[in-house]
């Protein structure tokens, strides 16, 4: 391993370590918690047993999908931050399919139909801001953000109104039929087949960017609009394509949660307004917009989320620690990337 590669990996790791260090100081000085015990609880709660690892991996699948959605859009400098809206749309349509199609259909058929329709549903939600951008120039950062709230309230409307399970005292939909459930990879855990889909998606996105013209064009459109236009890339078409794929991928995160983990959509189905869509953006960026980097970041974040929950249950540390720790780490990691780039530059050009 050359010195440059060593630096490339070492500095972000130092960034993560610095994040943990600050967090440890907070634990020690603010709540007199025993940090070793606290982090022990976090590790035990996330990686300490098969069922806990399954929890982590199933969350990894969900966040990987929203992460890839952000990755492809951000590579093209199309800032789709509407992951939430596409996720909720994908989840609702997955429930609709899982509760209305005849329950004697074989599972693979169910899964394929749900996968396709959820993808298209998410893509449709993502296309609206893309069209607005192409036609009127309305900035996608804001339209996708507003759409998050609109779709969220439509989701609330659906689970309290038309799609509500009439027999349940809570606001929730009917559960999907058993045949529509994603098979479990490890029996009696929440690790489901969607995790395989996520890995496949990571590889497909990797190949798209490494080997195909589409990937090359997306990259070109993202790095220099004018140069891309001169070389004959149709920017409008590019934006529409990117939004389509991005929205579809984010919707699959919703499908994973419905068909793999929760089997119905209830109130509080996914965190909002800062949910998996936003987390996806952050894992994509901490993964340096690389598919495998995104997967690894999603895994790391899932450990923090699942372990953070366990930490608050097992100790006197209040809720909210995982988010706080994650925010600190993100800032350090992003900062460290830039530091490591600069060191790399200095080494190259002196």
């Amino acid at each position: 391993m050359s010195k440059e590669t060593l630096f490339k990996y070492l500095i972000p790791i130092l960034g993560i370590a610095a994040g943990f260090l600050i967090f440890t100081l907070i634990l020690v000085f603010l709540i007199n918690a025993d940090p070793i015990f606290a982090f022990g609880e976090m590790l035990r709660g996330s990686l300490g047993s098969v069922s806990n690892i399954a929890k982590v991996l199933s969350k990894t699948a969900t966040i990987t999908f929203t992460g890839l959605a952000a990755l492809i859009a951000f590579r093209a400098k199309y800032f789709n931050i509407g992951g939430e809206s596409q996720l909720f749309a994908g989840a609702m349509i997955s429930v609709l399919i899982g509760t209305t199609l005849p329950s004697n259909l074989p599972t693979p058929i169910f899964i394929i139909i749900t996968l396709l329709v959820a993808f298209l549903m998410g893509a449709a939600v993502a296309l609206l801001p893309a069209f607005l951008k192409v036609k009127t120039g309305a900035n996608e950062v804001f339209t996708t953000m507003m759409l998050n709230f609109i779709v969220y309230y439509i989701y609330l409307f659906l689970i309290t109104g038309p799609m509500r399970d009439p027999r349940s005292p809570d606001a929730q939909t009917l559960p999907i039929v058993e045949a529509a459930e994603l098979p479990q990879l490890i029996p009696k855990t929440v690790l489901h087949f969607g995790f395989i889909f996520a890995i496949v998606a990571v590889i497909v996105i990797y190949i798209i960017f490494k080997k195909t013209l589409l990937g090359y064009n997306i990259q070109a459109a993202g790095s220099n609009v004018r140069a891309a236009q001169y070389s004959g890339i149709n920017m409008s078409k590019m934006i529409i394509t990117v939004a389509f794929i991005s929205g579809g991928l984010a919707a699959l995160a919703g499908m994973c949660e419905v068909n793999g983990v929760q089997y119905l959509v209830a109130y509080g189905f996914a965190p909002f307004p800062l949910g998996y869509g936003y987390l996806g953006i952050m894992v994509a960026l901490t993964g340096k917009l690389n598919p495998f980097g995104t997967l690894i970041s999603a895994f790391g974040l899932s450990i923090l989320l699942v372990g953070g929950k366990a930490m608050t249950i097992g100790t006197n540390i209040p809720d909210g620690v995982a988010e706080m720790l994650f925010g600190v780490i993100i800032l350090f990691v992003i900062g460290s990337y830039i530091a490591s780039d600069r060191i790399g530059m200095r080494r190259k050009y002196g």
Binding site: L274, Y278, E323, F326, G327, I330, L331
Partner: peptide, 8 residues
């Protein structure tokens, strides 16, 4: 990141 941090 600041939003996540603030919420947490």
């Amino acid at each position: 990141a600041i939003v996540v941090f603030g919420m947490g």
